[in-house]
Design a protein around this nucleic acid. Structure first.
Lengths: 346, 346
DNA sequence: ATGAAAGCGCTAACAA
DNA sequence: TTGTTAGCGCTTTCAT
């Protein structure tokens, strides 16, 4: 052995970063005391604390969170597994998570899966390897099996979006049904009576919930739902235009139309104007999600804002509770209401 | 000591996660051999390797990256410090980083600073504490001092955006001057002769570069730059409208206008149409950045796409080179060209 | 081709 | 109030 180090091995570590031992040496105390002065798990005399803090300051010491994590069995890290951070919904979600996680001392590591199952599984494995303390998992097409390893590893998981509850996995999602109902009621209050709905190719997933809310609101107001007024089309601007085009051909066309998302609503406006209709005078249009463009097109879109940030926050809160053991019961489901953003199109 | 564990302490760790010792025991080899079978740093007989792999499979073993990192002195993590992931530029940047970092085995941890200096410093401290192997740092108002601790810690840093080179810090940014010149040349080729520029309140930062490129292109084509054709205004839709409004009042108004960003360009279109001008027939409009809305407004914006993803990739490459020591010289500057996105407005 | 043992930097018993 | 010692899970000399 090479004892060319000080007594007790208090020497600069890799990258010249000081370690706790150096601080201890400089302050004339043990590493333990430095540790406790830092995380206050045991009383330290005021005089000592000051000397320790001085030494820390002087050396520019920053505790090694990796070592701490290894020892403590927690990494103060949570994993965020999403399809693609480039999809505008997810950055807001990520920010919501950080709103809550940051102050609690947690950081998040983000992985994109492109919605591919292999990559999802791989991402989950990676999160286990990285000893994350919790996982926020935003995926729709996932088999419960894929989450097995994570659950077995005892890592709390919160699923974002989707509907079916997975055993042992909490769920946070927006209130699609309620929001659609609110949107429909809003149109009803505005005096519109033939309200159509332009939804996706198949009535499944969130879109189905939205249709359900629409039906519920009409029924509740005593209106029958004319099946002709539900148009299936693609989830795109062109799809929206096409769907609304068909609705406007009807013998008794709608005076308002709700779209499953904002892109479709933008297409709906295209179609209406193409036919010389004024929006919302001749045809009111409502979107869903409140994407950035919703306020930029003309007329600006009235829409239900997807509460991404709130979802992120709720997810983070849940995660922290699971991690701390505050909550231990069976899977929870948290439903976040969307917000009506009133603009010129309805 | 409690030797209520197997011989040599091969017992399930926290959360029931198997550790290397368990794999070793099951495969009938030492932990050392498992380690080598896994990262191939030394030959392992085919038979042994198979047994190890089987054991790993059977136990669902996943190496603890935290422990590995502590031992190896590298965390396989890079830190991304940005103002706000909610700003659409950054998610794309983050994705670009991951494009390169992911395959190299790195993950990224993201922090938002809201552009506040205190939070920036705090974020950097955190990154040191977390032992990241590199940092991508996207901030404009930063003193070189703030990066001192990181540099002292021997952590490679790449700055994103900004212009002035900081000692010891590589820089990656878009070619604002070149892009603006390209945009101007494009308009020139289109036959436009009185090309105006709507820029921000003060001519500094990227906006200044863009003005410079605009001037250069005009000069190169043998046109004088009429100072009247440079309008200073706010970086917003309203600002763009206002600036173009002023330009159109001129005795000899422009036939084309370049805007410092897309929001301003959208405002420019507003102003033109308000005055009954056709775009691009009577007034061609160019934007900058290619935000999502650029393709959604009518007419769609011709614009220079901010090469965020490419910037992210270049940054990641640089970081990996610095980490591996492939590159050791002085600070590098990488300039990424923007891409002309031709649409209906010019 | 394989093992034993030391140690990355820290915290938590256990002692004093 | 403080220190000593062991060990988190892994990789890496050094030895065989």
């Amino acid at each position: 052995m090479r004892w060319d180090r000080g007594e007790g091995a208090q020497v600069a570590s890799r990258g010249g970063r000081p370690r706790i031992g150096q601080v201890a040496a400089l302050a004339g105390v043990s590493a333990t005391t430095v540790s406790h002065a830092l995380n206050g798990r045991r009383p330290v005399s005021e005089a000592t604390r000051r000397r320790v803090l001085d030494a820390i300051e002087q050396l520019g010491y920053r505790p090694n969170v990796v070592a701490r994590g290894l020892r403590a069995g927690r990494s103060l890290t949570i994993g965020l597994v999403i399809p693609d951070i480039t999809n505008p919904f997810y950055p807001v979600l990520a920010r919501g998570l950080q709103d809550v996680l940051g102050p609690a001392g947690y950081d998040e590591i983000v992985t994109n899966t492109n919605g591919e199952r292999d990559l999802e599984r791989h991402a989950l494995d990676k999160m286990i390897s990285r000893q994350v303390d919790g996982i926020a998992f935003a995926v729709f097409h996932t088999h419960a099996d894929d989450l097995r390893p994570v659950i077995d590893a005892g890592i709390p998981v919160v699923r974002l979006g989707g509907r079916q509850a997975l055993p042992g996995v909490d769920l946070v999602h927006s209130d699609d049904e309620g929001s659609a109902a609110e949107a429909a009621r809003y149109l009803l209050r505005g005096g519109f009576r033939r309200i159509a709905f332009v939804c996706g190719p198949a009535a499944e997933g969130p879109a189905a919930e939205r249709v359900a809310g629409y039906r519920a609101a009409l029924a509740e107001a005593g209106f029958a739902v004319d099946p002709e007024l539900i148009a299936h089309t693609e989830f795109s601007r062109a799809g929206g235009a096409e769907g609304v085009g068909r609705l406007l051909e009807l013998p008794d066309p709608p005076d308002a139309v709700m779209c499953a998302n904002d892109m479709m609503a933008i297409g709906a406006v295209d179609a209406a104007r193409e036919r010389g209709l004024r929006v919302p005078g001749d045809l009111a249009v409502m979107g869903f999600d409140d994407i950035e463009a919703a306020s930029l097109v003309t007329p600006q879109l009235t829409t239900m804002a997807n509460p991404a940030r709130e979802i992120g926050r709720a997810c983070a809160r849940l995660l922290l509770e699971r991690i701390s053991g505050t909550v231990t019961g069976p899977s929870t489901e948290v439903i976040i209401p969307a917000r009506l953003v009133r603009r010129q199109s309805a």
